[in-house]
Amino acid sequence: MYLKCGLLEDAEKFFGEIPLGNVVSWIAMITGYGKHGLGKEAVNSFNKMQSENIKPDAVYLAVLTACSHSGLLEESQEILLRLCCDSMVKPQVEHFSCMVDVLGRSGWVQEAKNIIECMPIRPNAGI
């Protein structure tokens, strides 16, 4: 709620008071940062979550989306690589779509096309 209202400091304060953060609370923070163009904060939160041994599962999409909206090309590439190496999570077309989006926004159109042609999943209409 705080993030949707743009009250980032209040959201961070409330998040810090949660005794045991879970995947849902991390997704909320990372998504909120992304919606407000704070991709670096989203990536930092994602890294902190992983350092606390919380499995990223659905968080990959939230952080990739945040990177895409903030134009964080290198961070997107690193996170997608982590996802592809993570044996617990199977990459989905939405993950690759975020990578295509950030590549296109960064002017790397041919590389975006290469991702679409080489990804291990059939592209959908959105990608």
Rank of each mutant, 00 (worst) to 15 (best):
G21W: 05
E12H: 02
H69Q: 14
A58T: 09
M99Q: 08
P91N: 05
G107W: 01
Q50K: 13
L20V: 01
V63N: 04
E52P: 10
E117H: 06
K48W: 07
L83P: 05
K48N: 11
S68A: 14
G104E: 04
V89R: 06
K4N: 13
W26F: 02
V59G: 02
N53V: 10
E52V: 15
V23S: 04
I30R: 06
S45W: 00
A42H: 05
V89P: 03
G16T: 01
A112V: 10
K90G: 10
E117P: 00
A66I: 06
M99S: 11
C98S: 14
N53F: 11
D86T: 07
L83E: 11
I127V: 13
C84A: 12
P56T: 07
D101T: 10
G107R: 00
P120W: 02
E94H: 09
S70W: 02
G126I: 15
F46R: 03
G104Q: 05
S87D: 12
E52D: 15
E12V: 03
M29Y: 03
K90V: 15
K55T: 10
L83I: 08
L72W: 01
S68C: 06
M88T: 14
L83V: 09
K40L: 13
F96A: 04
G16S: 08
E78N: 14
L73G: 01
L83Y: 08
C118L: 15
I54Q: 13
G71T: 10
F96L: 08
F15Y: 06
E17N: 10
V23C: 03
L103V: 00
I115D: 10
V93Q: 11
G71V: 09
Y60P: 01
N47G: 12
R105A: 09
I54L: 15
F14I: 10
G34M: 07
T31I: 05
G104F: 03
S97K: 15
K48Q: 13
A11N: 00
M99G: 05
M88Q: 14
G71C: 09
A125L: 10
G34L: 08
K113Y: 11
P123I: 07
L64T: 09
L83Q: 11
K55H: 08
C67M: 02
K35R: 12
A66E: 06
M49C: 07
I115E: 13
G126E: 13
N114P: 04
L3E: 00
E41H: 13
C5E: 11
R82K: 15
F96D: 01
E17G: 03
Q77G: 10
D10G: 02
C84M: 15
A42W: 06
E12D: 04
N47P: 06
N47A: 12
I121K: 08
